[in-house]
Nucleic acid binder design. Structure first.
Length: 509
RNA sequence: GCCGUGUUGGUCAACCGGUUAAGACGCCUCCCUUUCACGGAGGAAUAACGGGUUCGAUUCCCGUACAUGGUACCA
């Protein structure tokens, strides 16, 4: 009764870790931490045909980036391993045989061709996809329709076969979902799902139940796409380990794209990531950009996913991981799927860039700069600059545009912004101003600004009219913090050099 | 087709029988700023449809529509 909470995330390593997947991990993690329990990751690598090399490592890299470290996993260890299904193979067969012995499952010898034939023969416009269920199983080739000797013969001959669950007729199967409440199904309408495949590997249905039992899982969260197969799992628990030991289920709502189901195609189509990190499909070589590479902060990524389908009713929107752990409750998770809105996602990232001290992400910016050919030598200067421009950055790559001119003179000047109002008088002012600047001994904000204003008054030009040209000279465009602050930071030599260089190009035509 | 799940502004959403139906993103206007942002003040914009139940329904029930998931020896 007082069993410790044990929640598992069980990805199948077949592709990138998408938004819905990360949110499932997050809720698992939050729930486990909230109750002082264990957060477990196991890998569902039962399907050899779709298993993708490198995908397991990819999943853990993503978790690492998000900061969701499991208590138990193939790479972290634990007391209820192994944590990969492929390493538990013999056990599944035992469970399946047990079910047959108890009359809850049967051998099926139908070939793929025979299955196709059945589906084709029975297909009507009314029923486009006939199931292998109680209505047809006696017409098929299995241990229910065949005699004991026939079955034994087939088995002895080593004929390929699967093991199917024998769904009961006329029972109502129901269970209490943590999100949806009571959900029920008519057993007669559910088909005889394959439990053990011809190659001896279990299907997901047998595997989850067996593994959850083995690992003493108390709460199992998964996407809503699994809800329809829940009756199979409930029955398996009933037959194998007892309903009273079944974990609490929670079927999380789906995350939708702009046009329904979120697919990796949406990323390319609408220009936003759908995976946590870059994912290269080994089959096609196609690269899908991730949130990390797009320039998202993990804190923002987690935050935006957490509140997509959950809120605590307080109106708060910005949560740190710690806050999420203390505020999170399953009863406030939504039932309905939510459409992902990239604009709002960007807003979350912007908020986190403003909120977090620059130390948290300065290394990312540093490597961004490095890739653009700017090396950072003075860390204090670097931090000051980042602090100054962070309000203007929504995503990490924005720092390049917003801060590069602090390190290197702008390549291009927005001359169009000054030329229409440019005059000899202004030109003279700046030539003069350079001389004034040369003479400044203590290069600080007041002396730069005061001398600018004094000279402008002397020349009878409004200082305001000179500030934009000055900005274009130093920055290259109409953006950035206060001009004199920029001049202060980039220093005397650079300031004068940029003014002189700009005067030439203003003159140019 | 059948089964499951869902349906409050463009999007995320609060409310859990009586409200002028919060808030956020986005959009628009203004202020701040002779740059761009940040910040501040406003604005436009919402309960799918039809029946019930009730003194009273956005809230409860039933239909319909729509959306979404499943319907594989995939997960």
């Amino acid at each position: 009764m007082n069993q410790k909470v044990r929640v598992r995330f069980a990805p199948s390593p077949t592709g990138g870790l998408h938004l819905g997947g990360v949110r499932t991990v997050l809720y698992n993690y939050l729930f486990a931490k909230k109750h002082g329990g264990d957060f477990i990751v196991r890998i569902e690598d039962t399907d050899q045909t779709r298993f993708v090399a490198g995908a397991e490592k990819y999943i853990f890299d993503c978790l690492d980036w998000c900061g969701l470290v499991p208590d138990e996993s193939p790479i972290h260890g634990g007391n209820f391993g192994p944590y990969r299904q492929s390493e538990r193979k013999p056990q599944y067969r035992r469970f399946a045989e047990q079910l047959i012995k108890d009359g809850h499952a049967y051998y099926a010898f139908d070939t793929p061709e025979e299955l196709d034939k059945m589906r084709n023969d029975l297909k009507t416009s009314e029923n486009p996809s006939p199931q292998y269920d109680h209505t047809v199983r006696m017409q098929m080739k299995n241990s229910l329709s065949l005699s004991g000797e026939e079955v034994k013969q087939l088995l002895d001959d080593g004929v390929r076969h699967v093991i199917r669950i024998k769904m009961p007729v006329g029972e109502t199967i129901s269970f209490n979902d943590m999100i949806h409440g009571e959900v029920s199904f008519e057993s007669s309408l559910v088909d005889d799902k394959v439990l053990l495949k011809a190659d001896g590997m279990p299907t997901y249905h047998l595997a989850v139940v067996a593994d959850d039992h083995n690992m003493k899982i108390t709460h199992a969260f998964r996407g809503e796409e699994w809800l329809s197969s829940a009756p199979v799992h409930v029955l398996l628990w009933k037959y194998l380990f007892g309903l009273e030991n079944m974990p609490q289920w929670a079927h999380l709502p789906l995350i939708l794209g702009p046009n329904g189901k979120l697919s990796k195609r949406d990323g390319a189509k609408y220009g936003f990531p759908v995976f946590a990190m870059n994912w290269t499909d080994p089959a096609t070589g196609e690269l899908v950009e991730g949130f990390k590479e797009k320039g998202f902060l993990p804190a923002a990524f987690l935050n935006l996913l957490a509140v997509l389908g959950w809120n605590d009713g307080s109106g708060q929107e910005i949560y740190s991981l710690e806050e999420l752990i203390s505020h999170f409750t399953m009863d406030r998770v939504h039932k309905a799927g939510a459409k992902f809105d990239f604009e709002k996602a960007k807003w979350f990232n912007h908020e986190w860039i403003k909120k977090l001290p620059v130390e948290e992400y300065m290394n990312q910016v540093k490597s961004l700069f490095l890739s653009k050919g700017i090396s950072v030598n003075d860390e204090t200067y670097f931090k000051t600059v980042l602090e100054l421009v962070k309000d203007r950055c929504t995503m990490i790559p924005d720092f390049y545009e917003q801060a590069a001119y602090f390190f290197t003179a702008p390549m291009q000047l927005d001359t169009a912004a000054v030329k229409p109002k440019w005059s000899e008088a202004k030109n003279a002012f700046f030539e003069n101003y350079c001389t004034v600047l040369e003479g400044i001994e203590h290069w600080d904000l007041p002396s730069i600004e005061e001398s600018f204003k004094t000279l402008a008054t002397e020349k009878n030009i409004k200082p305001g009219e000179l500030q934009l040209p000055m900005r274009i000279m130093l920055v290259g465009g109409k953006f950035g913090p206060a001009v004199f602050e920029i001049a202060t930071l980039i220093g005397k030599i650079d300031t004068i050099a940029r003014i002189k260089k700009a005067l030439i190009s203003f003159q140019a035509d």
